[in-house]
């Protein structure tokens, strides 16, 4: 199972930069970039903060997909 997200899409729809979103959820811009690239799976608390900041239900922001064996 691989974690996917549409953080970048939701962020750009709201016209936010990575830095601005980082300030809203109390993380660095680099961490926002890692999440968007799928290089880092955020904690539940951070995922909930992102969902709130981006006005998007958490299950629409993050989801799991089967990985090909």
């Amino acid at each position: 199972m691989t974690l996917h997200n549409k953080v970048r899409q939701a962020r750009t729809q709201l016209g936010l930069t990575q830095s601005e979103l980082g300030v809203k959820v109390s993380v660095t811009r680099q961490t926002v970039a890692f999440i968007e690239k799928g290089e880092f799976a955020p904690s539940v608390a951070l995922a909930l903060r992102l969902a709130k900041a981006l006005n998007t239900p958490i299950n629409e922001l993050f989801w799991l997909e089967e990985t090909a064996q």
Binding site: S26, V27, T28, Q30, T31, F34, F40, P42, S43, L46
Partner: peptide, 9 residues
């Protein structure tokens, strides 16, 4: 260790 992303790195 600024945040959880940096701690992961």
């Amino acid at each position: 260790d600024e945040d959880e992303g940096m701690r992961m790195i």
